[in-house]
Design a protein around this nucleic acid. Structure first.
Length: 281
DNA sequence: CCTGAAACCTGTCTGC
DNA sequence: TGCAGACAGGTTTCAG
């Protein structure tokens, strides 16, 4: 699930309410339950538990794919990786609601009246931090793609300082924060750039188009509350607007060429051979 | 600096 | 039906 738009959607729901639940802002953590210790990054479980109790939720936000919860003393940070999700429950879960699957709940922060925040993560790849300074967690992250301070010129300069296949570079969180496999494929398609194009072969005009394409797919993803691909993430419908991702063998909506799938850096990669010509052509 | 492979995990789907 | 194998939205580490 979780690329930038999905994390943003969850963060907004926790901050303002939505996705069928209330805001967690202002709630005080009374109890916690940790079912899988390795979800915790670095901090020993005992210290984590003793530090977090009694703290109040101040604000929920996002940096790259990190979901950041500012507490009264510290920052509680989640990275959902491949299968993580956060949900809010109040009172007793409705009987028969299959969306409230308890199977893979790894961590629960419980507030007053059994109102709680639940971290569910089937594949156990997700991670949780509790730190005073959030910068220590994402100090290596690249710029926010939607940030107004990122100009086409800056983006282009960054592209040409590397000699890497553009898909791999866009997936690199140190280069740009927030893109994953879906939004990268979709952005490259819209920009008409082959995923194997070498980054320093991209001129300023094409770089500007790529940045705009990235912003378009991310903005559209956020507007649609993210993309729901499997049972993990619910609510979003950006998947209905995919043009290449998981469209292998289907006709390109622009030129009717057949969408292809290749493997690039261990990731399934989808593109239109006609709209995104092979580098060197 | 760059690439590929492996590792961390569980669930789902495909094909024999 | 059963079962092996491939595959999955991410990231880190290591070898070449």
């Amino acid at each position: 699930m979780p690329e930038l738009p999905e994390v943003e959607t969850i963060a907004r729901a926790l901050q303002y309410g939505g996705r069928g639940s209330d805001s967690i802002v202002g709630k005080q953590i009374r109890t916690v339950q940790l079912n899988w210790e390795r979800s915790l990054e670095e901090v020993p479980p005992e210290i984590f538990l003793s530090k977090i109790l009694g703290q109040t939720i101040i604000q929920v936000g996002r940096r790259g794919k990190f979901l950041v919860i500012r507490l009264s003393e510290d920052h509680l940070i989640f990275h959902l990786r491949m299968s993580g999700d956060l949900r809010v429950e109040s009172g007793i879960p409705a009987i028969g609601d299959f969306s409230l699957n308890q199977n893979h709940d790894r961590f629960l922060a419980i507030f007053q009246d059994n109102f709680r925040l639940v971290f569910n993560d089937p594949r156990k790849f997700g991670r949780i931090w509790l730190v005073e300074n959030p910068q220590t967690v994402y100090k290596n992250l690249g710029p926010e793609p939607l940030g107004s301070d990122l100009s086409s010129e800056t983006f282009h300069k960054a592209l040409v300082t590397h000699h890497r296949r553009i898909k791999a570079l866009l997936l690199d969180q140190k280069f740009l924060a927030g893109l994953g496999n879906i939004y990268t494929d979709e952005a490259l398609f819209r920009a008409g750039i082959h995923p194997r194009k070498i980054s320093n072969q991209i001129d300023l005009k094409k770089a500007a188009l790529l940045l705009q394409s990235i912003r378009d797919v991310l903005t559209e993803g956020i507007l649609r509350n993210g993309a729901s691909i499997d049972w993990v993430y619910r609510g979003g419908d950006f998947q209905n607007t995919f043009r290449v991702y998981q469209k292998t063998g289907e006709k390109c909506q622009v030129c009717e060429e057949t969408i292809q799938r290749i493997r690039l850096g261990q990731r399934g990669t989808h593109f239109c051979p006609n709209c995104q010509p092979e580098p060197g052509d």
